[in-house]
């Protein structure tokens, strides 16, 4: 592997006396699909929050695309190419489906205020381009027909997918998905599995997937890292991980 896209080097974060994540090493290459699993409270979401700059590590370092991410704010990391979804859906509740994606599209645009106030040709061209981009994304994910509906009025599975679309609208190099299959029925899960693989290939991005549903994880991940009590206890291919006694113990002892 050439230069990894994301590299966590001995990353630790403590909340008071609790070591939520302890000395975790993790490397993700461009266009790799990696799973991050572990029992409840193992620290998976915390790893996401560390990667996206919501938390700063107590010790250790994170590099993204060769650049150290310490001190960068979440919105700056998004500009660099890290996007995420949330374990408990966080769509913009008062915005339409279309506008949820539109809000995310503006990351890579400038002259916002001036154009918005002047409303000249540049503004109209810009807004037309945005609309095209948003609709293309929505259509890919079959959400086009809901464009004017309130995001929160969508059925649960579609809300999850809209969150993924919104994240993709920021043009990420790395997409972090936090339990995207949670609350989905088996059909939706099967579709989601296909969708994640499709996203990885179509957008040529890396995906880090946190998921409790083993069928989903084992089915699509090329490599899986396992956390337990904040510590990485195993890493390998799905077959290796499944056979690892430490992993079995961690899950049985849950």
């Amino acid at each position: 592997m050439s230069m990894p896209l994301l590299h966590l080097d001995q990353v630790t974060i403590r909340f008071g006396g609790l070591t939520a994540v302890g000395e975790v090493d993790l490397t993700i290459g461009a266009n790799e699909l990696v799973g991050l699993i572990g029992p409840n409270g193992a620290g998976k979401t915390t790893v996401f929050n560390l990667i996206t700059g919501v938390y700063q590590p107590t010790s250790g370092a994170i590099t993204f695309n060769g650049q150290t991410t310490s001190q960068l704010k979440p919105y700056q990391l998004t500009k660099l190419g890290i996007a995420r979804t949330f374990q408990n859906i966080r769509l913009f509740a008062s915005l339409s489906v279309f506008d949820n994606v539109r809000a995310a599209v503006q990351v890579h645009r400038d002259h916002g205020i001036r154009n918005a106030l002047w409303r000249g040709q540049a503004f109209r061209d810009g807004e037309a381009a945005v609309e095209k981009q948003v609709m293309e994304l929505l259509e890919i994910f079959d959400l086009g027909q809901f464009r004017d509906e309130e995001a929160k009025s969508l059925p649960y599975g579609n809300q999850r997918r809209l969150e993924i679309v919104r994240a993709l609208a920021t043009k990420p190099k790395l997409l972090l998905l936090d339990e995207p299959a949670a609350g989905m029925n088996p059909t939706e899960k099967a579709e989601l599995t296909k969708l994640i693989r499709f996203i990885k290939d179509k957008f040529q991005i890396a995906v880090l997937l946190v998921e409790h549903d083993m069928q989903v994880v084992m089915g699509i991940c090329e490599r899986i890292a396992v956390l337990d009590y904040g510590v990485k206890i195993a890493e390998g291919t799905p077959t290796e991980v499944r056979a690892n006694p430490k992993v079995i113990e961690a899950y049985l002892g849950e």
Binding site: P74, A93, S94, R166
Partner: peptide, 24 residues
């Protein structure tokens, strides 16, 4: 009422999500 301006409402709705979408 512009793509830029959706950021105000995004911040209103959810600062954490807005931040994760590249909005400061």
């Amino acid at each position: 009422n512009s793509t830029y301006g959706r950021g105000f409402i995004a911040v209103h709705d959810d600062e954490v999500a807005a931040s994760a979408m590249g909005i400061s």
